[in-house]
Design a protein around this nucleic acid. Structure first.
Lengths: 229, 229
DNA sequence: TTTCCTCTATTGGTTGACCAATGTTAGGCA
DNA sequence: TGCCTAACATTGGTCAACCAATAGAGGAAA
């Protein structure tokens, strides 16, 4: 925030507006106060307010028309700034897994085909860090990095961008119902062995093996989530 | 466009600005004319211009500061609303094919798994239209629709969005050096048999066969492009 | 000759008045 | 009593004047 104070104003206004909508609990379809009233409540100039409204409209969070007023759209005003957040609510965890099963094994295969020495080192580093994780949160971060390192190793900027989009949606999809019985992954956590198999296949430039290993890995993640389907 | 004319203005202004930047070939780091000059060249009011500039700034395509001017950012100003067209210039035809080889067979496999009766009909329709095409241009359009029908049949909105992104980049990647010896595809064009194989595998809900058939198809497209690699 | 400072022109940003579209209500007519 | 119309108030959108920040030229001092 301190780095670019001039943009902070706009962001500040946007979050202020969002908070206002949430606090006063405006529901989808509700009409919110006129601009000239809002500037009093929010203590900002109309121009600033309108910029914030522009942003929310662009996100699709609100809907406005001359003479009628401003209304909160069907998808609530609490959404993130990116356009994929719409997707996230339409993608069920099952669809998410199937998407990963479709994309990531192919990425691993490409990685095995194209991985440079440096890329392989990055994969191993990410893998070791995930094994050393002290909390589940940390583990998930490192696991993310492991998977992305593989996507990078595929050495195809287009595939990487697709992976990133997939990943953004994945993070946004709510899978909060996973129950953890411990504070950190056990040393013999299934994923560790699977990670090693993936990394070794890539290192050996064995595309087929990398593909299969990744498929098994995501499959077992799926099994943990949904209870052995 | 006709459905929401009030937003069309803004979009129009944005694309006009983009075109301007591209046509005059402003490079990253270049400073573009002052707002008061741009409104003359672009024939729009300053408010409208500023909205367009706001959008580009928000995308990160430009960079501006009071007293200094407006500059195009490092990632070029030709980007689309999604960030794909920047990609198009960085993706070689080979990488493009490898990306398709990574994604589309998996999509075909999912399609075989999930395709509804209606989805299968759409696939067959698209296939028949591509066979009936009278020009190469028409054929390519119908071929596009065939591939997209398969992506739709996968019944996974996330995978569909990934396919669309892939497809947008594909269209933007210049592969104009394909020489056609006839005005329309021959009746025994290789792709026709491959299309049939794909469609039949999906129809039979045979995932593996659909995957393999699509892989062969894209492989033969690749061979035609690059001369049997 | 070089350096520093000041003045001015130009830049993007902001403001308040104005405009057009819409909802509302009061009044007249059947 | 009911309905249609027209005047009015309120809405979001637009515009032109103004503001503050910056760059650059030019002159004075060392």
């Amino acid at each position: 925030m301190l780095t670019r104070p001039e943009q902070s104003d706009r962001e500040e206004a946007i979050t202020a507006l969002r908070d206002f909508i949430v606090e006063r609990s405006f529901k989808p379809g509700d009409r919110l106060p006129a601009e000239r009233e809002l500037i009093v409540d929010l203590g900002m100039t109309r121009t600033t307010l309108r910029k914030a409204l522009d942003s929310l409209e662009r996100e699709g969070a609100i809907w406005r028309h001359v003479g009628k007023g401003t209304f909160v759209a069907s998808q609530a005003g609490a959404e993130g700034p990116d356009s994929f957040s719409g997707l996230a609510q339409q993608v069920s965890p099952v669809k998410m897994i199937r998407a990963r099963l479709s994309i990531e094994p192919a990425l691993a295969g490409e990685a095995a085909f194209n991985a440079s020495r440096e890329a392989i080192i990055r994969i191993r580093t990410a893998m070791e860090r995930s094994e050393a994780a002290e909390t589940w949160e940390d583990y998930e971060t490192q696991d993310d990095l492991f998977h992305r390192a593989i996507a990078e190793a595929a050495d195809n900027i287009l595939l990487l961008s697709l992976f990133d989009q997939l990943n953004r949606v994945r993070r946004a999809v709510a899978i909060s119902n996973v129950v953890r019985s411990s504070v950190r992954p056990a040393r013999d956590h299934t994923s560790f062995a699977e990670h090693i198999a993936i990394a070794e296949a890539i290192e050996a430039h064995n595309s087929k093996a990398a593909y299969d290993a990744m498929r098994r890995h995501i499959g077992s993640v799926s099994a943990r989530l949904f209870g052995e389907d």
